[in-house]
């Protein structure tokens, strides 16, 4: 039993390594540091708070080509206090950016859904900027079983 389990473990590891070797060259240039750099480019050293953002992504995505993502930010959405923009980043895609939403008070809610491609298991990072200048951020991991980068 012991050897069976370790054999299975070995095959699983080998399988993951093989897939990673195929996908890795296409993922060159992307890392969590790139996402951090993008956020710094947008907001400099401003304080980033947690909370307010509801990020809805599947824990496990079977198909990395079509991964649903739903973002909603708590806000009164009045002329004086609304969500100006929401940026979505993927930490291990070939490029960090996924989508940047621009909201207005006329939207009534700061809520949007779409579908994205994920090259592999990674964290999705969402940053929301309020009209008041406050910035909020959250993240969630999506496990991808088949990559979405032509692989």
């Amino acid at each position: 039993m012991q050897t069976q389990a370790s054999k299975r473990q070995f095959l699983r590891t080998a399988g993951i390594a093989a897939v990673a070797a195929i996908i890795a060259p296409r993922m060159a240039g992307a890392s969590p540091a790139d996402v951090a750099a993008e956020i710094k480019k947008l907001y400099g050293d401003k304080k980033i708070e947690s909370g307010r953002i509801k990020l809805d992504v599947p824990q496990i995505a079977e198909n990395g080509l079509v991964v649903p993502i739903n973002v909603e930010v708590e806000s009164p959405m009045t002329a004086a206090d609304y969500v100006r923009s929401v940026h979505v980043f993927a930490e291990k895609n070939p490029l960090p950016g996924v989508i940047s939403y621009k909201f207005t008070p006329e939207a009534g809610k700061a809520a949007a859904s779409t579908r994205m491609r994920l090259a592999g298991t990674q964290d999705i990072v969402v940053v929301a900027e309020m009209s008041t200048g406050q910035i909020f951020s959250t993240r969630a991991e999506v496990k991808v079983t088949i990559g979405g980068c032509g692989g």
């Binding site: 991964v67 993927a90 950016g97 939207a107 949007a112 859904s113 579908r115």
Partner: peptide, 18 residues
């Protein structure tokens, strides 16, 4: 409502907003 899309968006981009 508006958005800037990047290559990580799925084919036949779908958007839902309010």
């Amino acid at each position: 409502f508006a958005c800037d899309l990047f290559p990580a968006m799925s084919a036949n981009p779908y958007l839902s907003f309010t």
